[in-house]
């Protein structure tokens, strides 16, 4: 009898406990969800008295600190809706001035031997003529680097840009091995001027401050694009090599002359090509071939 009662009691207790656990399991995520979704997604841009552009929440009028880390992480992951960024590189115009590389390295806190963008000297095997080819991350639509990342540190955004989150990166360098364009580089040592950069909030779109033991790569200057400006390399080029724009608009703008042209026309009229199309990576960077004797 006593034994039976004991068993009953424990079953009742067990059922009670299940009930409590169930209610907890349902309500906890609900509370979390409401807490997370309390800030609305509608943002308005306003100008502060000291001429700084900030975003405020439209509904409750709260200012968003654009240097806030969680905010930077959020926008860095999400990207810009409705856009698909592309770059066109006119090889016929490149004179190896290397200003694009310098601008890139100074903005991304890179050492001279580290390249997000490198200008290579190429040779036409039949004529022996040489030409210069700026090579950067191709921001593939089918990115092999993202496939192999075990920790979701490198990812693709809705606007087509492939970025690296160096706070998630564990430095395994699988992505470096997977990239057919050798577009990625590794911080083997302390990054350049790391002392100066140490107090800056990490901005995923700029990938600064760089961190030792993590991978870094071209970000299509995602931070500049957000402001409606052309990438650093494009603006620095004196020869009009780079075009940058939105494929959804079918418009690209030249970094030097600021001339805007139709993307489809530019690609068709100049028989544009992409690097290693046979791999099926579908790059977002197009090259216009170097003309003979140009």
């Amino acid at each position: 009898m006593g034994n039976k009662e004991k068993g009953k009691q424990s079953r009742r207790k067990f059922l009670q406990n299940i009930g409590v656990a169930g209610v907890g399991a349902i309500s906890a995520p609900a509370i979390l969800f409401t807490a997370c979704s309390s800030s609305s997604d509608k943002k308005t841009k306003v100008l502060t008295p000291d001429n700084k552009l900030i975003e405020i929440d439209s509904e409750n009028g709260l200012a968003i600190d654009t240097t806030d880390k969680s905010y930077l992480n959020k926008i860095g992951r999400e990207g810009i809706p409705g856009k698909k960024f592309v770059m066109v590189i006119d090889l016929g115009k490149c004179r190896n001035e290397r200003k694009c590389m310098k601008a890139c390295q100074s903005e991304h806190q890179l050492k001279p031997e580290q390249h997000h963008l490198n200008v290579l000297e190429m040779e036409n095997p039949s004529s022996g003529q040489t030409y210069f080819m700026p090579k950067l991350c191709q921001h593939c639509d089918n990115p092999p680097c993202v496939t192999v990342c075990p920790v979701d540190a490198t990812f693709k955004r809705q606007d087509g840009i492939v970025l690296v989150d160096n706070e998630r990166c564990i430095g395994c360098r699988f992505c470096i091995a997977a990239c057919p364009y050798s577009a990625r580089t590794f911080n083997w040592t302390e990054p350049r001027d790391s002392e100066e950069y140490k107090d800056i909030t990490y901005n995923m779109e700029l990938n600064v401050p760089q961190k030792k033991g993590t991978v870094t790569k071209c970000a299509f200057s995602a931070d500049r694009i957000r402001e409606g400006k052309l990438p650093y390399c494009n603006s620095a080029c004196p020869n009009g090599v780079y075009y940058f724009g939105d494929a959804n608009e079918d418009l690209v703008t030249n970094g030097t002359t600021k001339e805007t042209v139709r993307l489809s026309k530019l690609l068709k009229q100049n028989s544009a090509y992409t690097l290693m199309p046979e791999l099926g990576t579908q790059p977002s960077v197009y090259y216009l071939p170097a003309r003979e004797n140009s």
Binding site: L230, F244, G245, E249, T253, N254, T260, V261, R262
Partner: peptide, 10 residues
């Protein structure tokens, strides 16, 4: 012009 993201198309 048509307004583009980075410049205006003539």
């Amino acid at each position: 012009y048509i307004k583009g993201s980075f410049g205006n198309y003539l």
